[in-house]
Design a protein around this nucleic acid. Structure first.
Lengths: 169, 169
DNA sequence: GCCATATGCTTCGGATTCGAAGCAACTGAA
DNA sequence: TTCAGTTGCTTCGAATCCGAAGCATATGGC
């Protein structure tokens, strides 16, 4: 119907800015806490948390990358870093020779447990403090729907299409 | 009731994850569009947009950094990059010799204008499509409050300096 | 079997990022 | 004035990040 208007109304602009700013500010604060408490970057924390959340404590590289919205090469780098620190192990999968299974170690779980209380405290102070219980539920609902939609919407240019650069340079 | 429990309940966890994931996914998608449409990184876009939004088209370095949640050194780098491309100018302030005033150029505005429609389209497709008007307003309200709270809350322990802002001086 | 294609991960090169340290200009007080 | 402390920005070094290209395995069609 209303084919994409070329600008945003006040509410849309407000929602967009608030989303970006709030997530940036939060991430920034969390990053510092993680660095101090366990010398972890945010991505590393996300990886460990994802692994710790799995019943088996392990995941394939690709699934990890998708879960954390991270590039493959970047994940390789972080997985190697975490392995050097002994927080995860990486073993070739038995089914598929190409596939690598990443597993969190006991020490990885220990580090995770060490940073977690501070992490939760930051969230409480910064994100949840000014929000009511109902706000939080509403937020989870709305952003959850947005996230699900984005996850199932194919990236506009993700398809290996021929990029016709028909422009005079 | 901020008794800071050591773990999060389901709603909190959902809100937190949804916030992080949604902003990551959105940022990722927008980044690609900006790169293709105007060879801009997300930060560069934010800087140009901030400048373009100003009545005078200019801001001080520090204010830019605070607005975009960016480190000073990182901003210096990007400001130089943008200046090389002719999208902004940097001139010493007249009041304060230390201060640098960054101003968007006509070409900067042109690039911004070139990128904007696609940007808005992505937002519409990915973020706003699954949300109702009321959802969007609610989102702006809740996240706006969270952002304002975070902006006025000083970093927890990362305050090695005496920052006694004696009110009334 | 044999080849073309797809998939999973890594390597490589270059861009971006941050914190700490440094420099220069401002401020207030004695 | 002079000095100590503050503020604004840059430089430096190191870490992190991504996309493209590369390598190896897997899979389907013949």
């Amino acid at each position: 119907m209303t084919s994409s208007p070329s600008s945003l109304d006040a509410a849309q602009l407000g929602a967009y800015f608030a989303l970006i700013e709030a997530s940036s500010l939060l991430k920034h604060a969390v990053e510092q806490q993680l660095r101090e408490a366990g010398d972890l970057s945010y991505v590393q924390f996300q990886l460990l948390a994802t692994l710790g959340d799995s019943p088996t404590g392990s995941r394939r590289m690709t699934d990890l990358a998708d879960g954390v919205v991270y590039s493959r090469s970047g994940l390789t780098y972080q997985a190697q870093t975490l392995e050097k620190r002994g927080l995860v192990t990486r073993t070739p999968s038995s089914d598929d020779e190409r596939s690598i299974t990443v597993t969190i170690t006991e020490e990885g779980r220990a580090v995770l447990a060490g940073v977690f209380p501070g992490h939760v405290a930051i969230l409480g102070d910064l994100l949840f403090a000014p929000l009511s219980r109902s706000d939080i539920e509403t937020l989870a609902d709305i952003l959850g729907r947005a996230r699900d939609h984005m996850r199932q919407t194919p990236p506009r240019s993700a398809e290996p299409r021929r990029r016709r650069k028909a422009a005079g340079s």
